[in-house]
Structure formats: structure tokens, C-alpha cells
Design a protein around this nucleic acid. Structure first.
Lengths: 362, 362
DNA sequence: TTGTACGCGTTATCAA
DNA sequence: TTGATAACGCGTACAA
């Protein structure tokens, strides 16, 4: 396999046309409107192009002229190496990418510097050559998101933030979904509950968080899920003690540590309701390592319905992550620049796994 | 949260300059060279920009002028939803994306249509506004890869294809790694081996593949690994029977089916050497469902060292997938357009898990 | 079927 | 410290 020889000088539409002694229009047409010139001429153009190492109209120049990049930008809350720890995020990106594939659009992942300086976020967002943005689960007041808003391009939000003027949101009813699950658990008779949640605050920290602080989080998804648990608890005929543990990072390991922290805080806890499957699986690992039998001695639930969770037969909320990505893409590509606000909620279900049971009698 | 009012007409550097009765250069400098104008004037420019909804120089026009997109393109063999079934691929992309983040570059995922028409591959590659490409594990003669070569941009290959003129390749020594693992297994005394491999042929098919066909595959990574097993087998003092099962898709489910197929083909098989962890985990699931005890009744090995595999304590080759992505990014960004060919092989190791043992006596 | 002329929005260069 | 001018490479009316 050998490469076409690298051109000495840059070959352009114009230089190619000059070489062939035809006009630039004709060369352009050879690529963009095959029906506008004779097949023979077109063939001559294409073969000369190959000869000279010209691989077609420059995409940047074309984009400038046509005002479209055929590319959509993806905004993430964190660097990809963190986001991808979460299978639900991976599924979302896969769904979105597939939709892009189908429409012949490329997907641009906007870099998210771990520690964003003030202007850096806007900078990197403004540098993205895209026709629109999808923001995946970013917190309220996120600087990247703010910068994307300022670009006045079509914008679709997945999950968070909700209620933003002039954007379309794709998501689920987090509150209703978690409410249903929490009721199932509480109705079994649990009175001391541990809640394991993802990051809630502005700074990264691990440990106990008061309920009111959790309900003031910028992460509305986490907030809604915790609110749902609180609501379900309030509806019980008896008091229910809630211990919330926040985890800065979102891994099984931090789930395990959070489980430990929860039971340190309140040894009477008989059920751990986790806001994600990853944390729940970590809690299960922790329990196994400490000889705690699930569900006999401890109930555990998750949220997401990832493949790993289903394999572990975790009792959890199943949400269509890949479909969310797909819908976000579909909507974005059908969107006029200034559409009114809209919300599209997809269906969820509860997977009745084998990780919950009535609390053991004392 | 409310959006800045959408501008009636498109605001540009020029229109903003006109509005302020200053030159375009000055506006440009306000963004790109803050030291080239007085702080007061700069402030005046920036606030007028905000007022009018101008979010800074158009990225496409800037790219045209500066001849750089600050974006690198990622070429995959398959649509993302397939690629992402493989945790090793996810890790690779995460590593690459992180490197891009650090360098302030965006990552463009080039769409790979499931069924590529003749010209579609070239089309989509030519439309990508990027400064260079990373190709991840694409087969020899892949049309997308060919099109990327024709663009004469910096190009880094991960894993496959090897030996391409004028490109840098990042990978591992697949043959050596698998040879080491295969010897360990064979030295335990196994004489009937099943090999579970990913796609080998041009068309998607499941089932038995003769050794010589496997060794003619366009997928050099699979080829090398299988060759290593064959070599290890040839070095044994006794005959070793090899049964190769090819799987079109790369999932645990197909791994399970392949395991079944292997033992249907040769019920005497006592060890399954899989070319990936995903297939090995599928084989383990299959064994569990059929009451076959691992490793007592069946030995199983994988390749990759994914998190799932490590959790299952699978005996496997561990390779640094995320680091491969990182190195690919580093090399690409330090690359001159026409560098000579080069190869960089990263280290691997064998994880001695609990899934192999000597074959059971008959 | 082909060619001409203009504009897309920016940055580099040089002059003031 | 600011401004004028010329590219960057292409798409597309419109005229021929």
C-alpha cells in the first residue's frame, strides 16, 4: 500500500481547474453536481484530481461558503474519561452518534478541561465548528452550557438543565421514576434508608449531606431523585430516617466507600437507595466483601438499567439511555435555530431484581 | 435564565466594527491579541459584542484563514454503537479525548455508515474539518482509511492496519502477548483447544473457520493472536487440535454462542482461548448456564484486561487501552504532515486469574 | 455545458 | 495603538 505522492504546493479547486484549463465552476460541479457536466469531463477531472493528490473541495472553505458544518457538537459535564465511567453515558453517546451517522453528520466532542478557567469554557465552545449542540446532563449554570447558549445555535439538552428558555429537553421523569421505586422499597417496611448520590455540590467532596442541601443542588436530576425518595418517605405512616452520602467521583469504588460511610453514619440502615447503578453495584461489592447478604441483610437499588446492573439482577429503574441519544440527535437535526422551549420525556420502568427484601426482624 | 436576544441579521466581525466605527483588525485583536489595544477599547468591543449577540470570531472563517481546525478526527471500523460494546474501545476513546482536552483540541467522530456505499466513505472523510486523523483498529483496505490517507494529513493508526507507509502506528505486540498466554494454557496439558475470535472475514458470519482462512484475515490483530496460538500449539511435544469459531458481532451473547458452537464441533475441548475479554466473559456465562465448572471442567482466557474481566478474575492479557489513546493523540499532535513510518509498541502483561487449570483426567 | 463575478468571515502584513 | 488591503478556498447566481 503506498500513498499518492504528496503535492508540492497545495492543490485547490482553482489550481486544479487551471491545470485542466477549465473553470472552477466545472471542477466544483464535478464534485457537487455530477449532472451538470458530461461524464467524460467529470471523469477527466476526477482522475486529474487523484493524480495531483486533490481529495475534493476543502471542507472548511465549503463550510464557510455554505454556512453549515454538517457537524453537531456534544457538550459534556466532565472530561470523557470520567463521563465514560458511566455506561449510561456511553449508551447515550452511542445513540447520538448513530443518529449522526444516519444523517451523514459528524459528531464533535467539545473538550471539557478538568479545571476550567473563567474564559476557557467560552473559548473552547466558540471554537467549535458545528451546526448545533447537544448538552448531556450538565449542571445548572455550567459555563460551557452558557457559552453554547450565547452562540444562538440549535440546542438540545438531555436530562439537565431543565426549564431553560428556548431549548428542547429530552429526558425522563426522574421524580416519578424514583418515586415508584422508593415506594416499593419503603412498603417493605424499611425505616432507615441510606441514599447514595452522585456529586451534588459545586466542589468535589465525599460524605454526608443534609437533605435540604441536597435539594438545593445544581444537579436537578440528582435533586429530583432524592426529592422523590424524601416524598415517598414522607408518605409512609411512620418516620423514615434518611442518610444521604454524596460521592465526588462516579465509580463503583466510590459507591463502595459511600456504602461504608452510610452504615458508619447510621448502623440501623436496612436499605441503600442509590441514584445510579454504578454506585449500587459498588455498594453490592462492598456488602459482599463484608459478608453482608443482599437482600436478606441489606436491600440495594440503583437507577439507569445498565447492562452490568441487569446482569447482577439489581432492582433498579430502567431508562432508555441509547434512545435518549438518538432522540436528541433527531430533534436537533430537525430544529430551526429559534424554536420555542419543549420537553420530551421518555418512558421508564422498574426492573424487579433480586436485591430488595423486607428488613430483617431484630 | 434567558438568552441574549437573537440578532436580526448575522453579526460579524465586520458589522461589529462598523457599528463601533473602528476597523475589523481592532475587533479581531480584541479577541486574539488583547495586548494590541487599550483595555478600555477592548472592553468597549466586548460589551458591544455581548449586546449584539456576537459570540466571537466565526470558527469556520478562522479555520479557513489559519489553516487549522484545532480538531482531530477519529476513524472507527464500525458505528459507535457497535464499537462501544467493547470496553477496550471505550477506554481508547477516553484516553484520546483526554489528550485532546489537554491540548485544547476537539475530537471529531467520523460517521461510519453501517453499509457503506462505494463513494460514501470517501465523502464523509473528505468532509471532516480536521488537522489529522487517528484510525482505531480498522481492517486492511478499509475504504474510510483509504480516504483518510488520500487527504495527506497527519495520520496515526492504533493497532490496525500495520505496516502502512508514511504513518505512525501505536499498538502492542499482539503475537508475543498471546503467545505467552497460550503457552501457559498449553503447558497445563490441554490438547483440544477452542479459539473464539472476532470477525475475520469480509462478510459477517458466525461459525467454524479453517486455520488457514483465519491467518489470511484482513484483521491483522485477530490474525496475529490466532497465529500465536497456532505457534504455541506447534511447539508442544504432542498434537494439539484447534477449533476456530468466528463471531460476526462482538458481544457477550455471541461469545456464549461461539462457546456452544466450539464444543458442538469438538466435545473434547478443554480450553477456550478467546481473542477478547468480551467473548471470554460470554463463554463464562455460557458455561455457568450449562453447569460447566470453570476452571475444573473448562479453562477460559481472554484478551484486553477490561474492568469487567478483572472483576471476574479472568485469566487474560492486560493491555493499556486508555494509554494507547493518549499516546495516539500525543503523537498525532506532535506530527509533521509527512513523517516517516514508525511503530510504537506498549507493554502488556498476563493477569493470572482463576479461570484456567489443568484439563480434567478422563 | 461552461465561465464570470462576487461574497462567505476571518487573520496576516504592512503602513500610519 | 489603530487601520487598510489582500489573501484563505470555495459555492452559486447569472450570463454566455
Amino acid at each position: 500500500m503506498s500513498r499518492t505522492p504528496r503535492p508540492r504546493r497545495r492543490v485547490t479547486l482553482a489550481s486544479l481547474a487551471a491545470e485542466l484549463k477549465i473553470s472552477r465552476t466545472t471542477v466544483s460541479n464535478a464534485y457537487n453536481r455530477p449532472d451538470q457536466l458530461s461524464p467524460e469531463l467529470r471523469e477527466r477531472v476526477l482522475s486529474a484530481a487523484k493524480e495531483l493528490g486533490y481529495s475534493g473541495p476543502d471542507p472548511v472553505a465549503r463550510s464557510l461558503r455554505t454556512r453549515r458544518a454538517d457537524t453537531i457538537g456534544l457538550l459534556l459535564d466532565q472530561p470523557l474519561s470520567y463521563s465514560f465511567r458511566d455506561p449510561a453515558a456511553v449508551d447515550f453517546v452511542a445513540g447520538l452518534a448513530n443518529e449522526c451517522d444516519a444523517a451523514g453528520r459528524a459528531l464533535l466532542i467539545v473538550p471539557a478541561a478538568p479545571d476550567h478557567e473563567p474564559g476557557a469554557a467560552a473559548d473552547v465552545v466558540n471554537k467549535a465548528s458545528v451546526d448545533g449542540f447537544v448538552a448531556y446532563s450538565v449542571p445548572e449554570n455550567d459555563p460551557y452550557f452558557g457559552a453554547a447558549m450565547e452562540r444562538h445555535l440549535p440546542l438540545v439538552v438531555c436530562d439537565q438543565p431543565a426549564g431553560i428558555d428556548g431549548t428542547v429537553r429530552v429526558g425522563i421523569d426522574d421524580h416519578a421514576a424514583m418515586l415508584a421505586l422508593a415506594r416499593i422499597v419503603l412498603d417493605l417496611g424499611h425505616r432507615s434508608i441510606g441514599i447514595l448520590a452522585m456529586r451534588l455540590g459545586d466542589s468535589k467532596r465525599d460524605g454526608t449531606t443534609p437533605l435540604d442541601a441536597a435539594l438545593a443542588s445544581r444537579y436537578s436530576v440528582q435533586r429530583d431523585r432524592i426529592q422523590a425518595i424524601a416524598d415517598a418517605a414522607a408518605q409512609q405512616p411512620h418516620e423514615v430516617a434518611l442518610t444521604i452520602i454524596e460521592t465526588a467521583s462516579h465509580t463503583r469504588e466510590s459507591g463502595a466507600r459511600a456504602a461504608q460511610a452510610a452504615l458508619d453514619q447510621d448502623p440501623g440502615i436496612t436499605a441503600l437507595l442509590c441514584t445510579t447503578d454504578v454506585l449500587a453495584l459498588g455498594a453490592m461489592t462492598w456488602a459482599a466483601e463484608h459478608g453482608i447478604v443482599i437482600p436478606d441483610e441489606l436491600s440495594v437499588t440503583g437507577f439507569d438499567g445498565t447492562a452490568d446492573a441487569m446482569r447482577a439482577d439489581l432492582t433498579t429503574v430502567v431508562q432508555p439511555s441509547e434512545e435518549k441519544g438518538q432522540r436528541a440527535g433527531e430533534i436537533l437535526m430537525a430544529l430551526a435555530p429559534s424554536t420555542g422551549s419543549r420537553e420530551e420525556l421518555l418512558a421508564t420502568s422498574v426492573h424487579h431484581g433480586s436485591t430488595i427484601a423486607a428488613p430483617r426482624r431484630r
